[in-house]
Amino acid sequence: MNNHLSQDQFSMWVLGRSTPEERRHGTECPQCRAELARFEEPVAAFKSAIHDWSDRETVPRLHEVSAFLRRPPAPVTGELRWIAVAMAVGLLTAIPIYREAEALTHRASTTEIVRFPQASLSIAAETNDDVLLMDAVSAHLSRTIPAPMEPIMALIRDSDSTTHAGGTQQ
């Protein structure tokens, strides 16, 4: 391999996915080695620094963590807060609209009675008719024989109309 490593080949080297030929060139070629060091040295320094920092940090004991964790429930945050706000706005908007609609309906029915008293009387009459019709239907259904035959049945004596044992009717 005569050419130096390309940018992508350097990236693959850093990730440990270079070919054996690239690896050989990377270790033999001083220029490519220096190029690799320009990435690896700062990253190693960063890693070492942050590891040293975190190792110096005081680790809380579990009871301290649990004391923190026993805190009262966290205030509603993020999306939940937005949902709560949207629901509140929706309620505030819906309540007056509902009240207005209720008032309109009530007003309309009152106005109807005041304006057209005859109409309300006819409604009452219709209601009475309905009751009478229902009574007639009930009476019809409770008949034992059809209505046209009722005068004939009046001529037959009660004893003649009874059913004898044996099942036949005279």
Partner: peptide, 22 residues
């Protein structure tokens, strides 16, 4: 159980903290 978990906290706290910090 709490003692066991406390050991986990002691061991992994620096790793988790530095990762979250970065």
């Amino acid at each position: 159980e709490i003692q066991d978990f406390d050991r986990v906290v002691q061991f992994y706290w620096p790793r988790i903290l530095r990762f979250i910090l970065a």
